[in-house]
């Protein structure tokens, strides 16, 4: 049991900060690949990134089981999430509403909940901590929310992620959604976004 003083602080203004972070995630999800800055939290427990913690505080609560990848677990992070979000931390990622993973050790996408055809919203939203996000280069994104194409570079992902992502799309309406995080920046890839690694 951690002492209260070990728990890093949450939002300065829980109501308005949650709203601002949600709007960033909403716009990120509605316009895949666009970067949004969420700088509401500065001091967060390792290995969580500030944007990861902000998204959790804005969206995760007692109704949403959260799965932490093995390399994302620490006493500080678990205490922080339990205290501020009040969420159950689960061992089985196929039962999680949200998951926090690192890009380098991202487990197979097929192990998360994908929902079912009648209730496709019962899928996992996976928060992926990367080593860098940049627009205008890298992957070519297409799909709802994108006028023609959008480019997004994602650094620090293990190989094979985008092959698995190509298998996620055809599951529609089922499938996982990704929130990509780099420090205080986030972008999102809903299940409808198709990713091309190299454009001729």
């Amino acid at each position: 049991m951690a002492a209260m003083t070990d728990i890093k602080p949450g939002f300065h203004d829980p109501v308005l900060d949650s709203q601002a972070v949600f709007r960033a995630v909403l716009d990120a999800m509605a316009r895949p690949g666009r970067l949004h800055r969420v700088s509401h939290l500065k001091d967060v427990p390792a290995p969580l990134a500030p944007a990861t913690a902000a998204v959790c505080l804005a969206l995760v609560d007692q109704d949403t089981p959260l799965w932490l990848a093995p390399d994302m677990r620490s006493q500080g992070a678990e205490t922080f999430l339990r205290f501020h979000c009040g969420c159950p931390l689960v061992d089985d990622r196929s039962t999680a509403a949200f998951a926090i993973v690192s890009g380098g050790k991202l487990p197979g996408l097929d192990g998360f909940a994908i929902g079912d055809d009648a209730y496709p919203e019962t899928s996992t939203t996976v928060i992926v901590q990367t080593e860098g996000l940049a627009t205008g280069e890298g992957l070519v994104l297409r799909g709802p929310g994108i006028e023609a194409t959008h480019r997004l570079a994602v650094l620090g992902l293990r190989s094979g992620v985008w092959r698995e992502w190509a298998d996620n799309g055809p599951l529609f309406p089922c499938g996982v959604d990704l929130i990509l995080v780099d420090d205080q920046t986030l972008a999102a890839l809903p299940r409808t976004t198709t990713v091309t690694e190299q454009e001729a």
């Binding site: 995630v25 909403l26 999800m29 496709p120 939203t125 929310g145 309406p173 409808t192």
Partner: peptide, 8 residues
Amino acid sequence: ILKGVAIP
């Protein structure tokens, strides 16, 4: 809302 956006 976020799920709605992800599943148009």
